[in-house]
Nucleic acid binder design. Structure first.
Lengths: 200, 200
DNA sequence: ATTATTAAATAAACAACGTTTAGTATTTAA
DNA sequence: TTAAATACTAAACGTTGTTTATTTAATAAT
C-alpha cells in the first residue's frame, strides 16, 4: 500500500516546486511583479493548480517567510561561537545586513511591509522575531559584563543597534539609496558598522 | 478678461482637491490599497477626470511626496539657528524623529513606501532629498571643525546618523514596535538619541 | 475487465485594478 | 445663434488574483 505514501510525496514535491519557482521569481522581480500566471508558467501547470496547493498568493509568501526566518535565525546563531563579545557583536551586525541584502524580499515582509489588519495578531506573539532579539540582547549583555557599554541601559542599547541596522537595510531595500553607486554603498555600510562600533 | 485666471484657479483647486483626498486615503489605507476609483469617489468625479489632472497614479504619489519634503525641509531649517554644532546636531535628530511621528503619512511616502517602478528614475536626481541631506552634512562638518568626530569620514557619519534615525522612525511607523508600551517607547527613543550622541 | 469513485488539472469566467477611448455636456468666442 | 474649445463621463481594454464548472487521469469496487 505505497500509493498513499507516493501521493503524499508527490504533493510535497509539487509544493516544493511551486515554492522554488516563486522564490526565484520573487527575488528576481519582486513580490508584486510576480503574477500567479508567471509562477504557473514556470512550473508548466495551469494557474488553478496553484490554488490546490496554496490558499492564495499570500500563503506562498508566508511559507517562504517562515523559511526566511529560519534562515535568519541560523545566520545569527552561526556567529555565536565567536568568543570575544565585541567581535561577536560586530559579526552580528554584519550578519544582519547580509541577510537583508541576500533576501530582500524576506526582509521586507519581516520588517518593512505593512501588516494587513487581519494578520496583525501574528506579530503580537511574534516568537520568531523575539527569539532573534534575545540573541542581540544576550550579546550586548555579555559585552557589558566584559566592561563595555558603560552606563548604558541594555534595552536602550539593543533598541539603538537594531534601529541602526534596520535603518540601513530598509533604506537600501526600499530604493532610497539608489543614487549611490553600488561599490560606494558597500564602503558606506562597512564604514557605518565600524563607526557605530565606537559606541561599544 | 479674468476668465483665464479663473480657469487656472479652478484647475489648481481641482488638483488640490485630488491631492487632499489622495493623501487622506493613502494615510488611512496605504498607497497600494487606494484605487483611482476610490479617489474619484471621494471627490465625487469620474475616474477619467483624475487623468486630466495627473498623468497616472504615480504622479499623484510623487506630488504628495514633494510636498512632504518641503515641510520636512522647513523643519530642518528651523533648528539651524542653534550656535553650538553639537546641540544643533542633537536638535537635528530630534527634529527628524518628531517630523516622522507628527506626519507619519508623509514620512511613509518619502522614505518607506515602495516607489512605483515608473518613478524610480526620479530618485536618481533627487534634489529635494539631497538638499536636506546637505543640511545634515553641513552640521556634521561644523561639528568636525569644532573638534568632534575625530578620524571619521564625513559621508560615513552622515549615512550612519541618517540610517539610525530612519531605523527608529520606520520601525515605529510600520508597527514593528507595537509590543512596546507607548511611554516606554518614548524613553527608548530619547535614550537612543542620547546613546548615539556619544559618537560625536 | 468493466464500471464507479475519487483525485488532479485545466479552461474559462469573475471581480477589481490602472488606464484609454470615444463621446457627451458645458462653457467660451465669434 | 452658432462654432470651437474645454471639462467631464461612461464604457471599454488589458491584467491582476481568485473561483467555477468541467475534463482528464488514477484508483477502487464490482
Amino acid at each position: 500500500m505505497g500509493i498513499k505514501e507516493r501521493k503524499e510525496r508527490q504533493k510535497t514535491e509539487m509544493r516544493e516546486s511551486i515554492l522554488d519557482a516563486s522564490l526565484k521569481l520573487f527575488t528576481e522581480e519582486g513580490y508584486e511583479n510576480v503574477t500567479m500566471r508567471k509562477i504557473a508558467d514556470k512550473i508548466e501547470y495551469s494557474v488553478g493548480t496553484l490554488y490546490l496547493y496554496f490558499k492564495d498568493k499570500g500563503e506562498i509568501f508566508f511559507e517562504l517567510h517562515s523559511r526566511g526566518f529560519a534562515e535568519f535565525y541560523n545566520k545569527q546563531l552561526s556567529i555565536q561561537h565567536i568568543k570575544d563579545p565585541i567581535e561577536r557583536l560586530k559579526a552580528h551586525g554584519e550578519a544582519y545586513i547580509r541577510f537583508a541584502m541576500e533576501f530582500p524580499e524576506y526582509y521586507d515582509l519581516m520588517f518593512i511591509s505593512r501588516v494587513p489588519a487581519k494578520e496583525i495578531e501574528k506579530f503580537e506573539h511574534w516568537e520568531e522575531g523575539e527569539r532573534t532579539y534575545e540573541i542581540l540582547k544576550l550579546n550586548i549583555r555579555q559585552a557589558m559584563e566584559a566592561g563595555y557599554f558603560k552606563g548604558v541601559d541594555l534595552e536602550v542599547a539593543a533598541f539603538s543597534l537594531w534601529s541602526f541596522v534596520h535603518g540601513i537595510a530598509s533604506l537600501s531595500i526600499r530604493g532610497r539609496l539608489k543614487m549611490i553607486p553600488e561599490q560606494y554603498l558597500q564602503f558606506l555600510i562597512s564604514g557605518a558598522l565600524q563607526f557605530i562600533s565606537k559606541l561599544y
